[in-house]
Write a protein that binds this DNA or RNA. Structure first.
Lengths: 283, 283
DNA sequence: TGTTTTATGAACGATTTCTTTCGATAGGTG
DNA sequence: CACCTATCGAAAGAAATCGTTCATAAAACA
C-alpha cells in the first residue's frame, strides 16, 4: 500500500467516525504506531485532521469552520443567551423555520428534543435534527453554499413560496434603521421568501450587529415581529426598534436555563431537582 | 450550578465540537477534573458520549447509528470494492446524482475531492461534499427521513423533474428479474424521478441483494445502463442482467488486507527480520 | 549498478492522562 | 441536633500516550 492511499484511507476513517483512536487506526491500516503518528502529523499540517491525545478528530469539514475553533468568548456568550431567550417564546407543536447562521444554530441546538416541525435551509441545523425522531424535519433544497452550508437559489425560494410556518427565526449580518442586511445576494432572496412564509418573524442578532450595514438589504424593520438581542444594545437602538413596532426581547447573560431535560441519570433526587427552575413569568 | 445543568452543558459542548478535550471542559465549565471525569462516565453510561483518552466524543447522533459501529466485514468490503469500481466510470466534470444508502455513501466518499457537480437527496452524502469547494453541491429538499437521512416527498420529486444529470448512481434493497425493489414507498417515487432525470443510470448493489424483493418495485431492469456488483454474483443472475441489456461491471478486491493473510505475513516477515537483525551486515 | 532519498518500524525516556482513594462540604431527614 | 447521602475537590500511584532517535528497507535517481 502506498503512503498516499494509506493517508486517504486514514482521513476517510477519521472523517466517518468523527474521532478515531490511534490504536484503531493502527489495527485497521495494518501499520505501526509510528507511521500512524507521522501520517496524522501530515494530515494535521494539511488541515484535514486535528491530533488529540489518543487519536485524531476530523477537522476538514464544516464543523471546524463553524464551531470547533475559538470564537470571541463575549460574542459566544451573547449568542447563547440570545438563543436561550429565543427558545422561550417558541412553543411545542409549532412549525419553525430556521435560517442559517451561528446564532440560529445555537437556537437550533436548544430546540433539539422539542416536539416541533422544523424547516431549514441550513445543513448544519438539519444535521442536528436529522437523527431525532421527536421533531419532523423539512429541508429546503437548492445549491449548497460551500462556506456556510446553507441552501440557496431559486429552488429553495420556490419551495418556500408554498410553505407556511408559524415562526421564522432569522439571522442578520447587520441592522440599521433601514432594516436587516445580509452579505449574500442569493441568501437575501431566500430570506425574503422566508419572511413571506412566516406567520411570526423572530430576528436574532447580538448587539454588535447594530449600526453596520452589509451587502444587501433584506427587509425593513417593520417586517419583524420580535427581535432578540443581548443586554449590550444601546438605548438609541432600542428606541428605533420599538418605534418600528418590533417587540424587543433582551437576553440576560447569567441566567442560562437549559430547557432540554435528559432522562433520569441518577434516579434518586431528580424529581426534586427539576423544580429548581424558578422564573416568575409575568403574563 | 447543579449537576444536571452542568451535564447538559457538557453534552452540548461535546455534541457541537464532536470531540471535546477534558481540559477544555474543565476550563469552560469551571469545575475540577474529577468532576468532569465523573460526568463523562455518567454520560457514557447513558449513551450520550463516549470517553476517550484526553476527552470525549459525541455518540448520540446519526454518526453512531449509521457508521461508527461495526458493519459486516464481508459486506463492507464488497461495498467498498463496488464503490471503487463505480468511481472508475465516472469522469471529472460530470453531473452526478447520488442516491441514499450505504453503498452510494461509499461511492460518495471516493468522489470527494473530484471536480464534479453533485446532486443528492442524502444528508450524509451532502455532508461529505458540503465543505469541499472542488465540487458543486445541489441538495434535493423535502421531508427528511429520520432513520436514513434522505429527502423524500413531492418537493424532492418536483425538483428532480427539472434537473438533468449525466449520471445517476442508484442503490436498491433488492433485485430480481422484475427489476429494482426498495423498502420505502416515498423513496421509490423519488428514485423513479431520479431515473427520469438521468442520462445514464448506474445501479450499485452487492450480490446479496439479488433474488430478494422488497416492498415496492422501482423500475425494470431495462432502465439500467450499468450495474456494479461484487464477484459473488451467480452466473444465472449475470445472464438475466445481460439479457436485459445492462452492462455488468464486476468489482474485484485488489487490496484486501484480510486478517488471516495479514497475520501470516507478519509472522513470516518478523521471522526473517529477526534473522537479518541478528546477523549484522559488515560494512 | 551504485547512490541518495524517502518511508517504515522499534525502543526509550518524558509527559500526560486515568483510576482509585480519601477528606470536606451542602442539603435533606428523623 | 445528629445523622446520612450525594457531590465535589485533591493527591498519588498506575497506565497510556507522545516525541525523539536510530537502524533497516524500499524506492527514486543518476
Amino acid at each position: 500500500m502506498q503512503t498516499h492511499d494509506r493517508r486517504t484511507k486514514m482521513i476517510d476513517l477519521v472523517r466517518i467516525r468523527g474521532f478515531a483512536p490511534l490504536e484503531e487506526l493502527v489495527r485497521e491500516l495494518g501499520v505501526s504506531e509510528s507511521t500512524v503518528r507521522r501520517d496524522l502529523d501530515a494530515l494535521q499540517r494539511q488541515g484535514a485532521a486535528k491530533r488529540t491525545h489518543g487519536g485524531a478528530v476530523y477537522s476538514g469539514g464544516l464543523s471546524t469552520a463553524t464551531d470547533s475553533n475559538e470564537r470571541q468568548p463575549a460574542n459566544w456568550a451573547a449568542k447563547r443567551a440570545i438563543a436561550a431567550r429565543t427558545v422561550e417564546v417558541i412553543a411545542d407543536g409549532e412549525t419553525v423555520l430556521l435560517d442559517g447562521g451561528t446564532t440560529t444554530y445555537e437556537v437550533a441546538r436548544l430546540l433539539v428534543g422539542r416536539s416541533l416541525q422544523v424547516v431549514t435551509n441550513s445543513l448544519p441545523v438539519a444535521n442536528l435534527f436529522a437523527s431525532q425522531s421527536r421533531s419532523d424535519l423539512v429541508l429546503l433544497g437548492g445549491y449548497v453554499s460551500p462556506r456556510t452550508g446553507v441552501c440557496l437559489g431559486p429552488y429553495a425560494n420556490e419551495l418556500l413560496g408554498r410553505l407556511h410556518v408559524t415562526t421564522t427565526v432569522l439571522s442578520a449580518a447587520g441592522i440599521t434603521a433601514d432594516g436587516l442586511f445580509n452579505a449574500h445576494l442569493l441568501l437575501a432572496e431566500t430570506e425574503q421568501a422566508m419572511l413571506r412564509a412566516a406567520g411570526r418573524v423572530i430576528v436574532v442578532a447580538d448587539s454588535s450587529k447594530f449600526g453596520s450595514k452589509s451587502l444587501t438589504l433584506v427587509s425593513g424593520l417593520d417586517a419583524i415581529d420580535q427581535l432578540v438581542c443581548d443586554a449590550g444594545l444601546l438605548d438609541s437602538w432600542r428606541e428605533i426598534v420599538l418605534a418600528a413596532g418590533v417587540e424587543l426581547l433582551i437576553a440576560t447573560l447569567p441566567d442560562s436555563p437549559a430547557p432540554s431535560s435528559l432522562a433520569s441519570d441518577t434516579d434518586a433526587a431528580s424529581a426534586k431537582k427539576t423544580n429548581s427552575r424558578q422564573r416568575p413569568r409575568p403574563v
